[in-house]
Design a protein around this nucleic acid. Sequence first.
DNA 1: CATGACCGTGATACTAATACCGGTATAGTT
DNA 2: AACTATACCGGTATTAGTATCACGGTCATG
Lengths: 95, 95
Amino acid sequence: MVRVPLTPEERQRGERFGVLLRQARGERSMVEVAAAAGLSAETLRKIETGRAPTPAFFTVAALAAALGLSLDELAAACAEGQFTQGRAAEFRQAG
Amino acid sequence: MVRVPLTPEERQRGERFGVLLRQARGERSMVEVAAAAGLSAETLRKIETGRAPTPAFFTVAALAAALGLSLDELAAACAEGQFTQGRAAEFRQAG
DNA sequence: CATGACCGTGATACTAATACCGGTATAGTT
DNA sequence: AACTATACCGGTATTAGTATCACGGTCATG
């Protein structure tokens, strides 16, 4: 085995990650945010829906910049999201 | 065209990114840091040498946690690294 | 010199990320 | 009803990230 498939935990983390991004996007459209971040709308949709659970670092960085999010808080939120849903509310009002 | 190859700029950014990580690692060995971050030493080596210029977000997040780095500063440093080398010095003393 | 432990590296294998295309559904507008 | 805009979904193509294997270098010890 050379390239270990993603574990269910990683996929669940990707889903939480996508939910956070979608909440931060708010009322803005996918194409607008994707264009602002410099990636295709399909890629943004896959990330938000959890179908791309482990996106590239600079993809996330560009997305966070377009959404005005902190990478540190983003990583912490979806890493701890399995325990508390409280941080999601912070993102909703901050993003 | 389906999956656009990485541009030379992205590869250069990946090299700067790897240099920052290697500086932050300091005297610690690859295997130690890789184990602390939960990835293989070969993967860390590829990232540090720039042969994996766009690593996954959570890989970088785990690495930054193992090295005590801020994801925001890391992204900013290697994004602006093409202009100023000053931030590298900050990482050298901070990491 | 031989042996072993540790580190870094090159080659290979295989999965995942990204982009493009077509189709579908829903809601809003005229 | 027809048109538009948005989002979801499946499939396809191609590059890139990650892990395993095998090899060479280094340093300490015998």
